[in-house]
């Protein structure tokens, strides 16, 4: 018998596709910033910046009362009410600061801006390892935050596991690598970087596969009823196709196959393009299934 009190979160809380996009873009931007520390290409900076802007646009558009945001912030500031126990507030601050850092990095890459004398400092700053380390760290934290965001949503037991931040960081890294591979395909990044990235990606894919399976296993085997309902929806229910086909098939197995081929046989730009897009899609699907499968703990006497 189905539990009497079965509710998935989307129809009620509306954490649906917009939040999926948000989490995806934050993952790309966040771990992309880590990648940027190593691959300091303009295109990558633009991608990070774009992802951040889009991610924030999605999250703001999701707000039921976005039009009330100015008043909200005004009231917060004038009353000195800052709820630092909220991961969302922490996240908002992190993302805002990260956005500012990102603007600086982007500015450092735009030649005509650099011709404006008083903006030269952006380039100077963006060449400093310390600055880029901060930039990478904030990106990493933003990714972690986007995981804790779910972890702290204590109404949805499927999410109440620290595997989510881990999954988010791993998959965010995979997304960042996929972006770097795509940049290689477009000739922006050197072949040697790409080769390294492919190897790194292979490792991360394997970790991600294990992490996804662990996520399901933990929820199914040790989770509460609500967690089991969610994991069942992912593993064998409504979202099984997205989990097995999208997250694992497209998102992990395809990149692993192409990665192995690249490492063992030969490197092919079209294949790497496919692999990267597949990896990015997989990262997207991962966020989607986890979000959509979120359900409340059924209440019974």
């Amino acid at each position: 018998m189905a539990p009497a009190d079965l509710h998935f979160q989307v129809p009620i809380a509306h954490w649906g596709w917009t939040i999926v996009w948000f989490l995806w873009f934050v993952g790309i931007a966040g771990m992309g910033s880590v990648g940027y520390f190593f691959v300091r290409k303009a295109a990558l900076a633009y991608v990070i910046f774009g992802s951040l802007v889009l991610g924030l646009a999605f999250v703001v558009s999701h707000l039921g009362r976005w039009w009330n945001l100015p008043r909200t912030l005004w009231t917060m500031v004038t009353n000195g009410i800052f709820n630092w126990s909220s991961w969302m507030l922490v996240g908002i601050v992190l993302l805002s600061v990260h956005l500012i850092l990102s603007v600086i990095v982007v500015a450092s890459h735009i030649p005509w801006l650099q011709r404006i004398g008083w903006l030269k400092w952006t380039a100077t700053l963006s060449r400093a390892n310390a600055y880029l380390a901060l930039y990478a760290f904030l990106g990493f934290m933003a990714t972690v935050y986007s995981g804790f965001l779910l972890t702290q949503a204590s109404g949805i037991p499927l999410w109440n596991t620290s595997l989510i931040p881990i999954l988010w960081v791993v998959s965010g890294s995979i997304a960042a690598i996929a972006v770097i591979e795509l940049l290689y395909v477009f000739g922006v990044v050197e072949s040697s970087v790409s080769t390294l990235a492919v190897r790194l990606g292979l490792g991360l894919d394997a970790i991600k596969l294990l992490a996804v399976l662990a996520f399901l296993h933990v929820a199914l085997a040790y989770g509460s009823a609500g967690a089991r309902i969610g994991a069942t929806a992912m593993a064998s229910g409504e979202y099984a196709l997205m989990t097995w086909g999208g997250v694992i098939g497209i998102g992990i197995l395809v990149p692993i196959a192409i990665g192995l081929y690249t490492v063992l046989v030969k490197k092919s730009k079209p294949l790497l393009a496919i692999s990267s897009i597949a990896a990015l899609a997989g990262v997207f699907f991962l966020r989607a299934v986890v979000l959509l499968a979120g359900a409340w703990e059924p209440l019974v006497l």
Partner: peptide
């Protein structure tokens, strides 16, 4: 005055007792 309708309280409530008003959100 301070609510922007982010729904975090909804997903955070283990009892599933919050619902969104369709107009005021």
């Amino acid at each position: 005055r301070m609510c922007s309708g982010c729904s975090y309280c909804v997903t955070s409530c283990p009892y599933n007792v919050r619902w969104f008003h369709p107009d005021s959100k």
